[in-house]
């Protein structure tokens, strides 16, 4: 029983991270009908930004961008002693990484996706794959190919639960931040004017345009928001599992995408549900069946659900109009 409980906790904290990334996929899909394959790589960039914010660029890196070798840029928030490892530091690092990645998302949208938006969706898809390859290969050149160790932003400890299970404080914090971000997103989409415009754009781009909505601005905002969430996920994952490398986004991104489709792509609660489901299933398969078939089982569930509910768990079934 305690093993089961432990596996369930493991699964939920893994699933929360998938959910956070899946949200970005779902939002972009909702607005543009574009599978943004580069999203997983934005998550990677987010983790690296967190790394450089905390640890600094190093003496060489700082000099390369014209900064002194012992300033904040060179040694980071932690290295220069500007901040102590604490929850506040973690939040500051995360928010800054989110801001940087939001900018990255806007740049990607502006220079890669907007020019192809007027063309077919397949063109956009290939462009997305191109951007993804660019971020991965560029990451290997810029960040270096070797895995990096993410600094400890706050002290972690184990909290024992009833029944012999235990939970790490990092897991709790990741979970709390993830839930807070999801609620925040829900509020933005359903309680603000911009959110209303986003829903209108996703409902029908052309009509929204005719209603006087600046669709370009809304799409840009969607990318900024999605990329910021991916960056948050990147930093949160790195807090929990402190190893980051330029290819870390590929598999996680793919699974988060699967989670988004599973829950009903374009649907925010669906993405959260899909992420949790994938996380828990994976953990249970690893714990009780053969770990080797982990990926196969995740995909098999996806296929089964799609075959019986083609628009995902929470997606609405659309009648095709003639």
């Amino acid at each position: 029983m305690s093993t089961f409980l432990q596996q369930l906790i493991n699964g939920i904290s893994l699933g929360a991270i998938y959910s956070l990334i899946a949200l970005g996929y779902t939002m972009v899909y909702g607005v543009l009908k574009l599978i943004n394959f580069a999203h997983g790589d934005v998550y990677m960039v987010g983790a690296f930004m967190g790394y450089y914010l905390a640890n600094g660029l190093g003496a060489r890196g700082a000099q390369a961008i014209g900064q002194s070798a012992d300033g904040l840029i060179a040694r980071g928030l932690l290295g220069s002693g500007a901040m102590e490892p604490s929850l506040i530091t973690a939040l500051v690092v995360m928010l800054l990484a989110m801001a940087i990645c939001a900018a990255l998302g806007v740049i990607i949208e502006r220079f890669a996706y907007r020019p192809v938006r007027k063309y077919s969706r397949l063109t956009a898809l290939i462009t997305a794959i191109g951007v993804s390859l660019l971020l991965e290969n560029g990451g290997q050149v810029v960040f270096g190919a070797d895995p990096k160790f993410f600094p400890e932003l706050f002290k972690k400890r184990n909290i024992d639960l009833f029944g012999g299970a235990s939970i790490n404080s990092a897991d709790i914090i990741v979970l709390v931040i993830a839930i807070a971000l999801m609620i925040g997103l829900q509020l933005v989409v359903f309680r603000t004017k911009t959110g209303r415009a986003m829903r209108a754009v996703s409902f029908n781009l052309q009509s929204a345009k005719l209603m006087g909505i600046n669709t370009d601005r809304i799409i840009m905002f969607t990318f900024a928001l999605g990329s910021a969430l991916a960056a948050a996920a990147g930093v949160l994952v790195a807090i929990r599992i402190p190893r980051i490398d330029p290819l870390m986004g590929i598999l996680v991104g793919l699974k988060a995408f699967v989670a988004a489709v599973l829950g009903g792509i374009g649907n925010i609660p669906g993405a959260v549900l899909g992420g949790l489901l994938i996380g828990i299933t994976e953990t249970m398969v690893v714990g009780y069946l053969s770990p080797t078939y982990k990926d196969a089982v995740a995909f098999a569930i996806l296929i089964l659900i799609l075959l019986f509910r083609p628009s995902g768990l929470l997606g609405s079934v659309a009648q095709e109009k003639v």
Binding site: T26, F190, R199, S202, G266, N267, G315
Partner: peptide
């Protein structure tokens, strides 16, 4: 059809 299928939120 495709828009219906996937709106943002409900």
């Amino acid at each position: 059809a495709s828009v219906d299928k996937a709106t943002l939120g409900e």
